[in-house]
Design a protein around this nucleic acid. Sequence first.
DNA 1: AGATAAACGAGACGGTACGTCTAGTCTTCAC
DNA 2: GTGAAGACTAGACGTACCGTCTCGTTTATCT
Lengths: 217, 217, 217, 217
Amino acid sequence: MARNQSAGRPVPAPDATRRSERSRRAIYDAALALVAEVGYPKTTIEGIAARAGVGKQTIYRWWSSKADVLLEAFLDLSEQAAETARRAQADDRPAYGIPDTGDLAADLKAVLRATVDELRDPAFEAPSRALAAEGVVNEELGRAFVARLLEPQLQLYADRLRAAQEAGDVRADVDPRIALELFVSPLAQRWLQYTAPISHEYTDTLVDYALHGITPR
Amino acid sequence: MARNQSAGRPVPAPDATRRSERSRRAIYDAALALVAEVGYPKTTIEGIAARAGVGKQTIYRWWSSKADVLLEAFLDLSEQAAETARRAQADDRPAYGIPDTGDLAADLKAVLRATVDELRDPAFEAPSRALAAEGVVNEELGRAFVARLLEPQLQLYADRLRAAQEAGDVRADVDPRIALELFVSPLAQRWLQYTAPISHEYTDTLVDYALHGITPR
Amino acid sequence: MARNQSAGRPVPAPDATRRSERSRRAIYDAALALVAEVGYPKTTIEGIAARAGVGKQTIYRWWSSKADVLLEAFLDLSEQAAETARRAQADDRPAYGIPDTGDLAADLKAVLRATVDELRDPAFEAPSRALAAEGVVNEELGRAFVARLLEPQLQLYADRLRAAQEAGDVRADVDPRIALELFVSPLAQRWLQYTAPISHEYTDTLVDYALHGITPR
Amino acid sequence: MARNQSAGRPVPAPDATRRSERSRRAIYDAALALVAEVGYPKTTIEGIAARAGVGKQTIYRWWSSKADVLLEAFLDLSEQAAETARRAQADDRPAYGIPDTGDLAADLKAVLRATVDELRDPAFEAPSRALAAEGVVNEELGRAFVARLLEPQLQLYADRLRAAQEAGDVRADVDPRIALELFVSPLAQRWLQYTAPISHEYTDTLVDYALHGITPR
DNA sequence: AGATAAACGAGACGGTACGTCTAGTCTTCAC
DNA sequence: GTGAAGACTAGACGTACCGTCTCGTTTATCT
């Protein structure tokens, strides 16, 4: 992502130590605000630069594309949110990840309900939807999006499922990385593709189906 | 979809009876070819018109956007493919839909394996990926994409599951429309978002997990 | 003007006897009205056709260009005006042309004053200015404009000057066709090119200078 | 001329100090060449931009219309020609304007003969004819054309006539600005409107008629 | 009176150019 | 010597007309 250095002429890499933190922040803010306000397709680099009070070159110097700017802006936003959340928690509690109360179904349902709520938060919806869309069509960005944003999230589910396996609540022969998709992917698809509305009841049902299957026991 | 008639001056709707079938076909072909060759973002209306040997206005007269052209082109392609498939089948066999051999798991696995193959067919991949991406970010198109392409496919799974319910192979309290997502959505997400590779083994596993759950029985 | 029949395939010449007089009149009216309202450059053949309630082909069938339509429309207008003027005159008076009272200077001044007034009539100004402009840049139309509209007018001056020569009021060695330009062309240039305002005093002065020269006698 | 700033949103005026002289020259050259080669109506802004190797926006940034480009291009050409002529002259001779040998008729005839030759020079004919035509129909451009190109030329005649008045060769009560039209306007009209051919003999005759009148002395 | 054929209103078609917008590069000036 | 400002080349956007080409629908003679 960072900087395109594959091309012919070895562009002298900008000196990152002298980079203006002020501009970086302003660009993130402008990019997120514009995506939220006018949508991703109508968000332009010129627009971001103008809103951030920054020259276009300052954007092209540090990012390779509109999608790249937005990806980093969103990553930054997520980190800030995570940081805030972490700080807000009581100090000695498990810092991050999916809770493990011993009740797998309840834990998954709780987290998925929270995810549903988050997906409906407009501040998150516009940029993450934009990034997801761009990632569908732009494989490089798609992989970056998955690696830096999605996979870390999914890993938390995998960890929880592995813990459940150790507790005997999930069969040992089950691959947690696949199993988690049984409830995560349906939610993702409904949200991304508007195939159907999402709700707490829906995600609860997904967890039940995924844990116990749909055949008679 | 149809025609923009929301704006101020009521543009007289073009006379569809005089529409050039030749141009329509040429536009579909050009649009699909360009999306496959240079990708959706670099496919332009000017490019489609030039390649189709058609005036730009002929495109703007009948479609409202590049996405709209591609959606119809892809629908047309699908219909043609379905038509071909239908014709290729023996006359008395069940014409369309998911086979029902009595073995639900085997039937689902077979269809999903075929889907995996289709998703890897470049002729289908480029346009459907492009449409899916556009649909993520453009709700109107997204809903049209789902309603006209995706949902009819999903309905076939729902039908098969309902038959399985009647045969006692699926619990009666299960909602087929949700249940199908347990194996369809994971595949869709891996394909769309590059979260992980897809394979026949993978979809087989999904069916097994979905049918029997991941908890010990 | 008439009809382009130089090209390869011998387009069957339209049958003028079956031509719709109604359409012809409507086209003339629409053309003149549009030129007066929106100016010549913004007058389009589509616009004329729409306003005249006529198919575009009906225009292309009978005229070769926008300029051609306007030229004929203006000729028609001029003929009608001349006809009206002729009818309005007493029956036995000299029907047409420049009066000959025996006083050359007075006669020329009177006619030029009338011309100044006519040039200021908006109904004449827009189309004649448009035709003159087009004629400057389009030699074929320019020559047609001169031959059919301008030269007949100038001929009247030449006739009056010749009569004056016979009466001994103009030197015998003077070429009337050139002499008339001494007062006609300055007026034409001021009007066409906005080089200076026109007035009755101005044309009176032109006649005086032209008749007696500008050197001391 | 300058820049359109009448519209709603106040488009930020471009910074003239940073203007590319290279582009400006290339645009002038391309515009003049195209007008000479294919004529004014078939000269397009796109064509000028392409030929000049320039983006369309660079033309729209600095000029408001095709006519405006051509006017400035032609002014530039005239200035260059005048500059060249000035440099070519012997240093102590009267730098510019109409010669004053004491023989008014001869001086005027000489200058008009030179003008006839210039009007026949294709390099000047196409653009000046195009500008004149556009000026007939577009008052704003017409006035600019007159003010910046025509009137300065005419002023030279007025100056020479005033000198002749002081020398007693022209009557004191004659208005030089009007008198000059007696020989300038006829030539202009013949050239512009193709009313008749132009020649050295013709302009000589015009001078004779204008100086001495057409009546017997 | 009916047949026949051309002119007609309408408007879709392949095109060209318009004037605007944005991409991404390059240059200038201020801090 | 970085970074804002913005002019530059390039080219797609969506619109407006061009001139050509069908369509059916009048008209208007010619059987």
